[in-house]
Nucleic acid binder design. Structure first.
Lengths: 238, 238
DNA sequence: TCAAATAACTTATATTTACAAGTAAAATAT
DNA sequence: ATATTTTACTTGTAAATATAAGTTATTTGA
């Protein structure tokens, strides 16, 4: 086991502060310790500390005020599907349960896929899965995921119940989501979708098509997500 | 006229590079000049250049690759309503026309407003306006905006036709949008909304409720936006 | 007492320097 | 010719330093 922890210092501090914010050690409106204090506390220089704080600000956890300090925001992360981290982790793994509709299988890519595919992607086929996510027992997301079939040993046999796909990719394959693009529409629910989301046919449903980019060159994750927004809204910061 | 241009260098370079990307001088997949080249070209040091590039990357204009360089992305900014810049500017002011439904008027805040209001906001009342945005002649957005009534001389008499609200606020009042939060839902079109968006009643419509934060302390801009997503999707990067 | 000036904080911008680590092409050895 | 090594380039991380500028509380002066 020669896995040296070579996490950069600024990422380490970012993680620590974010954890503290999420756990409520710093509450809404609180001022974080000043940059100089953080320098002393964690034995870093100011540029390093500042890089952590900038990242926190970019991710919407704090707002920086010149001359005043860094103020903690309440991030309305109730259903943070618009953020990078994925739905499960965004909810703090509390009320969200995941049910597998179609276990991960290796299939060829669908014709006329929602996003253009590279030649390499087309050749290798994709890992396909369908999941239903329930919030407090109510089905909210019907999630169809597509994943390039490149070098992910045993992915199709992994246990996905109540786990975030992103978490598995990060923990077992060191794959991180870097960003992506998405299209959003309001559509009438088809029979299949309405049955999964317990809606009447043609009820309005939110449809997201997402392409997510990873730290692995050429590896993208695609999702088609249908949301029942009758009771819950999709929240996001920008 | 003593308006000294005290734009930070990194913002200047950010603007220059973004302009070049938007104008197509750098195309999709192109490598930007290396950090050291930019240092020489614009007479800055590397941390300064890196700050510009980091901001560009955060805004989705480029992707940085260690050991390789910064690659220009095609940003799918078709209808960038999910981005900060506002709809009109996101489309490059080309096909999008704006029609005023209700001219800016000063009214008291609505009871049970979609976002909680501070006491100061409640007292001062709000500037209310309704606009319809047409893309290639098709009504796409029905936009209801609320604005704190604080120190915006002549705002209610300004000409908003075919101009971005954000642009007017920036140019005349030096107000910049810093970020915000939004809720997204799919809802059935009401009679009023369906008539504006030329849809049948109860057709699915995308509903966005947004609270935007500005550089002016305590000044927020609220929008309720209804989108016809039959032909167009809402696009965003994250 | 009250308003203005000041001091002591805060973050923002910028330079300089050093080394680590990833990428790609050129040089080398087989 | 081909595989390997080297080299030269790229971005990533990090320290040390300096000055500017915004905010707040204290001190000062009337």
């Amino acid at each position: 086991m020669d896995t040296v922890k070579k996490i950069p210092q600024y990422k380490r501090l970012y993680g620590i502060l974010r954890k503290h914010i999420i756990e409520g050690i710093y509450k809404e409106g609180d001022l974080l310790p000043s940059e100089n204090e953080l320098c002393r506390l964690y034995d870093m220089t100011r540029p390093t500390v500042r890089q952590s704080l900038s990242t926190l600000a970019a991710d919407g956890y704090i707002r920086k005020h010149q001359g005043k300090g860094s103020i903690v925001l309440i991030l309305p992360r109730e259903i943070g599907i618009l953020s990078v981290s994925g739905t499960t982790s965004a909810l703090g793994d509390r009320n969200l349960k995941t049910k597998i509709i179609v276990k991960p299988v290796l299939i060829p890519w669908i014709k006329d896929f929602m996003f253009p595919l590279s030649e390499i992607e087309k050749e290798s086929g994709c890992i396909y899965m369908e999941r239903l996510r329930l919030l407090d027992g109510n089905p909210i997301f019907y999630d169809i995921s597509y994943l390039d079939n490149i070098n992910l040993p045993r992915i199709t046999s992994r246990q996905f119940e109540n786990k975030s796909l992103f978490q598995i990719l990060r923990d077992h394959y060191l794959i991180e989501i870097r960003g992506g693009e998405q299209r959003i529409k309001a559509i009438p629910a088809s029979v299949r979708i309405s049955s999964f989301l317990q809606l009447k046919k043609n009820q309005p449903v939110l449809h997201l098509e997402r392409k997510m980019e990873t730290n692995v060159n050429g590896l993208f994750i695609y999702s088609s997500i249908y949301c029942n927004t009758e009771k819950y809204s999709i929240f996001g910061r920008f």
